[in-house]
Design a protein around this nucleic acid. Structure first.
Lengths: 146, 146
DNA sequence: TATTGTTATACTCTATAACTATA
DNA sequence: TATAGTTATAGAGTATAACAATA
């Protein structure tokens, strides 16, 4: 490699799958409701929407970021009216973070846009190809949980 | 949604595919050779390895970041000995950025680790399931280019 | 003049350490 | 003491605007 000649990009099916997934995911995430709304913020709102209210610590653990980092993200989202903090009555050290209607709306809009792009993309494929992707989705979900 | 009940997560095959890809990609990217080497830096080194030397502007365009941002990334990688800058003899405004042997090594090691995890994951599947993922990889590559 | 790369500066997201309130 | 959340502070990556060298 010292002559800097380009290497063969896909040396195996494994590499091909890795690169395909990373590229496709990047393309998909570019579609969001509001360009000022980062991926991390959308993920937090999505967790609240799909799994209900969380404490700060639970959110930080789910998104694999530190508590101070999540605290900052939550501050922004609270200021923008997308979620609320309320004190836990049973353990007053805790705060319960829940989605507002505005937060629900922004998640729905983001998912709608992503699915709109993806729907267009899928429409260019054959029925058989769409079936392959649906089966692959189930497999990837299983593997990601490992 | 104002009662904050969790929503149904997967409302369609489109949403299922979107979420599967995003999760799988996140899991995949967590595997790297050096935790101090960010995704963006690895992507730059990968471009140089798979496509040969680039100018600064070409790298910025390929990675979809601004020229000053790419300049900063290239400065770090140059300081760490992973790439070299040389002046273009034909157009002296340009610099040619090329991978060093150390840069090649770090890309190979990162890909090896990522593929090691993925290889383990694939080994848990049937031959038929692996074929499905290989076909899906080709489809995703095609769709990401849209 | 237009283009390529660079510097100056600022904003976002991330982290660790230290602090407060509560258990 | 230990835990949940927060504040203080710093580092990495990003951007736009302004500048230098060259075409």
């Amino acid at each position: 490699m010292s002559d800097h000649a380009p290497a063969s990009e896909s040396t195996s099916e494994t590499s091909a799958l890795r690169m395909a997934v990373i590229r496709f995911s990047r393309r998909l995430r570019n579609e969001r409701a509001d360009d000022a709304m980062s991926d991390g913020k959308i993920a937090v709102l999505g967790s609240l929407m799909f799994r209900g209210p969380h404490t700060l610590g639970e959110l930080a653990e789910r998104e694999r970021v530190s508590a101070p980092s999540m605290n900052r993200t939550v501050n922004c989202l609270e200021q923008d009216g997308y979620l609320t903090r309320t004190n836990d009555v049973e353990d007053r050290r805790r705060v319960i973070i829940a989605l507002t209607d505005a937060g629900t709306a922004v998640v729905r809009e983001t998912l709608r846009r992503r699915d709109a792009w993806l729907g267009d993309a899928l429409a260019s494929l054959s029925e058989q190809e769409r079936r392959t992707l649906a089966e692959a989705a189930a497999l990837m979900t299983r593997l990601a949980a490992r």
